[in-house]
Amino acid sequence: MRSLAAVLFVVLATSVAAGAASSARSVDPPGADKPTGTHPPQIARFAVLVYSMNRDAKLKYVGVSGSDVRPHQGGMRYKMVVTAADAGGATARYQVLVWGIPGTYQWMLLGFKKIKIN
């Protein structure tokens, strides 16, 4: 029997893959230096959801900035700064690292670390 986390991961990965496939019809702006079919806001939402479920953090996606997308080990590596709000509405920024293969169910959240402001 699969664990709840594994089932939820498959459901989320399915929604990310389906979203990537449906948005593959959209055209990236001319001169975009990112690979075709990559959508950092959607990947950032995936990261917040997976982290929230695994840590029971109740975070909500707010936005993404500083996105860096590169080919890595047969897939794509997404490194970005994600802003998320907690249950009380306070926002924080997180350094996020996600690896996945666009158009598939193979997605992994590799890092989700709060950025400390000095």
Rank of each mutant, 00 (worst) to 15 (best):
M1A: 07
S3N: 13
S3E: 07
V7E: 15
V7A: 15
L8T: 08
F9Q: 15
A13C: 08
S15N: 15
S15K: 15
A17Q: 13
A17K: 05
A18C: 05
G19T: 11
G19P: 03
G19D: 04
G19N: 06
A21D: 07
A21Q: 10
A21T: 15
S23I: 08
A24P: 05
R25G: 07
R25D: 04
S26R: 11
D28G: 10
P29C: 07
P30I: 11
P30W: 07
P30V: 06
P30S: 02
P30G: 10
G31F: 09
A32P: 03
D33Y: 01
D33S: 11
K34D: 03
K34F: 03
P35K: 10
T36F: 02
H39G: 06
H39E: 11
P41D: 15
Q42A: 15
Q42H: 09
I43N: 09
I43H: 05
R45D: 05
F46Q: 00
A47V: 09
V48D: 06
L49S: 15
L49C: 13
L49Q: 12
V50K: 07
V50T: 11
S52D: 02
M53T: 12
N54Y: 10
N54H: 10
R55C: 06
D56A: 09
A57Y: 01
K58N: 14
K58Q: 12
L59Y: 04
L59A: 09
K60R: 14
Y61P: 08
G63C: 11
S65R: 14
G66S: 07
D68C: 05
V69N: 13
V69T: 13
R70P: 06
R70A: 10
H72P: 02
Q73V: 03
Q73C: 01
G74N: 04
G75R: 13
M76S: 12
M76C: 12
Y78N: 03
Y78R: 00
K79V: 14
K79G: 03
M80E: 03
V81L: 11
V81G: 02
V82D: 08
V82K: 04
A85N: 02
A87K: 09
A90V: 12
T91P: 05
A92L: 10
A92I: 00
R93D: 14
R93W: 02
Y94C: 08
Q95I: 07
Q95V: 14
V96Q: 01
V96W: 00
L97N: 07
W99I: 04
W99Y: 02
I101G: 01
I101A: 05
P102T: 08
P102Q: 13
G103L: 11
T104E: 11
T104L: 06
T104M: 03
Y105L: 13
W107I: 04
W107P: 00
L109D: 12
L109I: 06
G111K: 10
G111E: 15
G111S: 12
F112V: 06
K114F: 03
K116T: 12
K116M: 02
K116P: 01
